[in-house]
Amino acid sequence: MNMLTFRNGIRLLLIVILFLGTITITSLGAIMNTASAQANKPTIVFVHGAFAESSSWNGVLTKLITKGYPTVAVANPLRGVKSDADYVASVLKDINGPIVLVAHSYGGSVTTNAVNGNNNVKALVYVAGFAPEEGETAAELSGRYPGSTLTPTLAPPVVLPDGGKDLYIQQSKFHAQFAADVPANDAQLMASTQRPIMEAAFNEASGTPAWKSTPSWFIYGDRDLNIPAAVHSFMANRASSKKTIIVNGASHVVMVSHPDAVAEIIEHAATAQ
């Protein structure tokens, strides 16, 4: 090896070392920036409702995770308002820093009762969700104004060993009733994977509502056949909603059919002062 070849080899080695060092420094910087961004953002906690499950939030989750929000999608037991609220409250207690609590449908009854004085919960977002007053039930609220067609679409109850009853929506009626603005194939998957709710949960009275002390935001579709739009409007006005979005043509699962709009209002709640 002559001296020129040796020198060229040394130069090449130095270039490689500097290049690798740049990659490492750049990657470390990106990681630190991401961690810093997440540290400055509240954790968004999602609670699904009856006849749904955590994956119903996937479209919204994708958008918020991309923007650096820490997220948790809770598996709502759907056994009863108080017991479900106690479970969600236990999840909230393990989260450090500010929280935005997002709920769909019956999940709204749960989150309304789950805050329990947790000062980390800075905002409530009701996504086609119940926001009951103390003593109210989901069944009573959904029937307060005309328009709900849920009851005739329910399958015969599944009787449990303890005498309780689990409720499902008939799969053949799920698309039209629950998710009319979702593609048929997606709605069939949702129908097949739906989680049952105990019948008694719909008739269990709510406790002291968190929306009286925690700022609330509302979004719902004007073609919701589970909870009529008039009911949503009534609840949002009563809770002095900071912002209410009505999505034209949207069904009960507005978070599935319009994830952009739902993610936007959640960000609005997350960044409100």
Rank of each mutant, 00 (worst) to 15 (best):
I99R: 04
P196Y: 13
S233L: 11
G249N: 14
S36V: 07
T137M: 04
T111W: 02
T151M: 14
H48L: 01
I25P: 01
V45N: 01
N116Q: 15
D186W: 05
F178R: 06
K82E: 02
S27F: 11
A139S: 14
H104M: 13
P156L: 11
H104W: 02
V81Y: 09
I227T: 08
E136W: 05
W217N: 07
T193M: 08
W217K: 07
L154G: 03
A114N: 03
G108N: 09
A138V: 07
I197N: 01
G147D: 09
N119G: 13
V88F: 09
G207M: 06
A205S: 10
H258Y: 14
N113T: 04
Y145V: 01
N8K: 15
G164L: 12
Q194V: 13
N237G: 15
V91K: 03
P228H: 09
V102M: 11
N203F: 12
K243M: 14
F51I: 10
L20K: 02
L189F: 13
A205E: 10
V88M: 09
M198R: 14
V127R: 01
A114C: 08
S241L: 02
V16S: 14
A75K: 09
P228V: 09
F6D: 07
A200Y: 08
V47E: 00
A236Y: 00
V256F: 01
I31T: 12
E53D: 06
F6L: 15
V110C: 04
N118Q: 08
Y87I: 13
A139K: 04
T271V: 12
S27K: 11
I65S: 12
G59R: 07
E133K: 13
G129M: 05
T208H: 14
M235H: 06
K63Q: 11
F51D: 00
I31P: 03
G164H: 13
D222W: 08
N248C: 08
V91M: 05
I15A: 06
W217L: 11
A30R: 13
L78T: 06
V121L: 05
N113F: 06
S206T: 03
